[in-house]
């Protein structure tokens, strides 16, 4: 579909601007599907109308009609053709869905936490924020989403993405915004009293402005988003004095992780954290896997499941005891202890 007609369709259908490549792909499918839908409904309605006019009864006397029966095979053939069309949509939709979930290489990871009734954002190097999610434009971003209390849903209409935030679990979402701008974010899963006001703003900054934001400046776009009356609840969080990795260090001490895990490379009761991230682990089962963020969080929640060979099975679970943000912080801390830390990711 040529871009101009796509914009026209977007206006006709009241779709908001599409701020990413994926959103435009989804819109293209949307146009096909919705056009076919409207044509189908119209065709059936019109056919019925034509029959109605053509075969309407004159006078009140009913007249007998011919017995007309279409063999079932024709109906099934028709159904088969239609199913082919539906499956084509499904095929395209499925691929797009997978693309939405696949994180591109080098994506900026940001932790999103929904709680009644606000969105909190934390990334490895930027400040934590509430209600305003700041990302660089033209760079892949991966959101790791969870909730503190009940199910929420992180919804950005301009990106055509939505992902439930489920307590006790991380879900993820990836996108690359084309150009700078600010876009509304809603909570789409009913979550109680102020569900209708659980809004936030997604601000995409040009790379250099994003860099300044990391360094502490508040670019006007972010300030505006925070003060936008239409997007209430959008405000900048207290600027954290420490980075997320530093917070992870504090939390690791608080939860007693450091009683068993060292950070200097010496094995203790548990494996050391130095160089742990990204290294290959050998489990008691003989299975080998790489200690990524998934493995680390899994180990905190279900330590008995993927035991590493050579250590006693003594680690307690932290399921339900640690806040998701703290889990994320500790993972970031362990990440900062990898051997190649400091080099480009």
């Amino acid at each position: 579909m040529i871009p101009a007609s796509a914009d026209l369709m977007r206006d006709v259908l009241f779709l908001p601007e599409a701020a990413s490549r994926q959103a435009r792909d989804i819109d293209a499918l949307h146009f096909w599907v919705i056009s076919a839908t409207m044509l189908g409904a119209l065709a059936v309605g019109l056919t019925a109308l034509v029959f109605l006019v053509k075969y309407r009864r004159m006078g009140d006397r009913p007249r007998p009609t011919r017995f007309i029966a279409l063999p079932v095979k024709y109906e099934l053939a028709m159904a088969g053709l239609l199913l082919g069309l539906f499956l084509a949509w499904w095929f395209v939709g499925y691929r797009q869905m997978i693309a939405l979930q696949r994180a591109p290489e080098g994506a900026l990871e940001i932790y999103v936490t929904g709680k009644q009734w606000m969105w909190k954002f934390a990334s490895a190097d930027g400040p934590d924020t509430v209600g305003v999610l700041v990302v660089p434009a033209a760079r892949p971003v991966r959101l790791l989403i969870t909730a503190r209390d009940v199910v929420h849903s992180f919804f950005v209409p301009a990106l055509r993405v939505k992902q439930d935030a489920i307590p006790g679990r991380y879900t993820s979402l990836s996108f690359t915004i084309d150009r700078p701008g600010s876009f509304p974010v809603y909570c789409a899963e009913y979550c109680g009293l102020s569900h209708s006001r659980m809004w936030a703003t997604l601000v995409a900054l040009p790379p250099e402005e994003y860099q300044r934001w990391l360094e502490g400046a508040v670019p006007p776009a972010v300030g505006e988003a925070g003060g936008n009356a239409d997007i209430a609840g959008g405000r900048l969080g207290e600027r954290e004095a420490i980075s997320i990795a530093q917070r992870g260090e504090q939390q690791a001490a608080r939860y007693g992780c450091l009683a068993c895990h060292t950070v200097d490379g010496q094995p203790h009761i548990g494996p050391t954290w130095r160089g742990l991230f990204g290294s290959e682990r050998v489990l008691v089962t003989g299975q080998r896997l790489v200690a990524d963020a998934a493995y680390l969080t899994q180990s905190m929640m279900r330590p008995m499941e993927d035991l590493v060979a050579g250590y006693p099975p003594v680690m307690p679970t932290y399921q339900g005891q640690m806040e998701p943000a703290d889990v994320a912080a500790i993972v970031e801390y362990i990440k900062s202890l990898r051997h190649d830390a400091g080099r480009a990711p």
């Binding site: 790791l144 969870t146 006790g168 679990r169 991380y170 998934a294 969080t297 899994q298 399921q319 998701p324």
Partner: peptide
């Protein structure tokens, strides 16, 4: 799904 754990996969 590899389950409920905190699995950012």
């Amino acid at each position: 799904r590899r389950t409920t754990g905190f699995l950012p996969q």
